[in-house]
Write a protein that binds this DNA or RNA. Structure first.
Lengths: 184, 184
DNA sequence: GTCTATATGATGATAGAC
DNA sequence: GTCTATCATCATATAGAC
């Protein structure tokens, strides 16, 4: 119905799994089933679509992390739920791959949107670490900001390693190791 | 033989910092200071150069990790030295970015070389975790393979986060947090 | 808003002379 | 081994009709 929405949804999926620079407008049009005229009417330049996609994928990721944490009894359980984000790592992180995409980094608005998404995720995790320390499920000795950063890095790294090796089990090993350290 | 080396060295640097798919043969030629005739004489296709680069960057990374660990008194100190690999994260990991590059993943030989490099790093780290447990500098309760995978993931993730936010300090926070967990 | 036709430059090469 | 010329294809649009 709404071609603009069809374009964005296709681009979100394609930029996520195949990369921004390595996906052409033509591929997006084909996937969305819209013509060139429609595409360039809604997005004068590819970067305009990219900006929208980085923002939406960032929001989606934060929302899915919040959803995965919902209903968990302790702060530690919520952190465990976050580590589960790497449970299907072969497709790559919704936004992590953009950090290595020269086409994203070359465009200041896209770069800023990417940084903002990571900052929001870090802040969310830090607040959950504090909750976990408050309810006694995680050691009070840990620095909340650094612990949150480490957990986010483990998950992002797990995506990288899984894609590099082609084996999901390498991501699972990383998150299991991180959990053991957290509980240690 | 000299131009071949110049081409490889330029490509190693450019593919590392700017990505494989987003760097053209022409850019490599310009950086290396060689002409098209020379380039295609040594590397019939871009992927042939890419294969060489993935292998060399993998070997270089393993070698630099080994060098950083050398002379450290305990296994834990060697792991700390490895965490320091993310001390200059804004340029990206020598091989980590390839995991999100569609042009690398689409070529089986490049993909295999990438996976092999990660496997070698993981194996190296696992052996160091075992040494650390043997000398008492790291808890014997930890699973060596999972702990090694987690530490590698932290470092790879630190590169991703630093590039996404544009701030080295976000990588430093992640590795500091990981060290605290390891010592915890 | 969408269509088709057209334009410009880059990419990843190949051909043949030196 | 290296050079210059050439080439097909693709990426990224723009123009104007409907």
């Amino acid at each position: 119905m709404d071609n603009r929405r069809l374009i964005i949804d296709s681009a979100k999926k394609l930029f996520w799994h195949r990369g921004y620079s390595t996906t052409s407008p033509k591929q997006v049009m084909a996937d969305a089933g819209v013509g060139q005229g429609s595409f360039y009417h809604h997005f004068p330049a590819k970067a305009d679509l990219g900006h929208e996609v980085v923002q939406e994928n960032g929001r989606d990721l934060v929302a899915s992390v919040r959803a995965a944490m919902e209903g968990k009894a302790t702060g530690r359980d919520r952190l465990v739920a976050f580590l589960g984000s790497a449970g299907d790592a072969l497709g790559g992180c919704q936004i992590g791959g953009f950090a290595y995409d020269a086409g994203i980094l070359a465009e200041p608005p896209l770069r800023e949107a990417l940084g903002a998404a990571f900052t929001e995720l870090t802040d969310l995790l830090e607040s959950v670490v504090r909750e976990a320390q408050a309810d006694g499920s995680v050691s009070a000795k840990l620095d909340p900001a650094q612990t949150a950063a480490a957990l986010l890095a483990v998950v992002e790294g797990a995506f990288v390693i899984a894609r590099a090796t082609g084996r999901q089990s390498t991501a699972d090993a990383a998150t299991a190791g991180a959990l053991a350290l957290l509980d240690g």
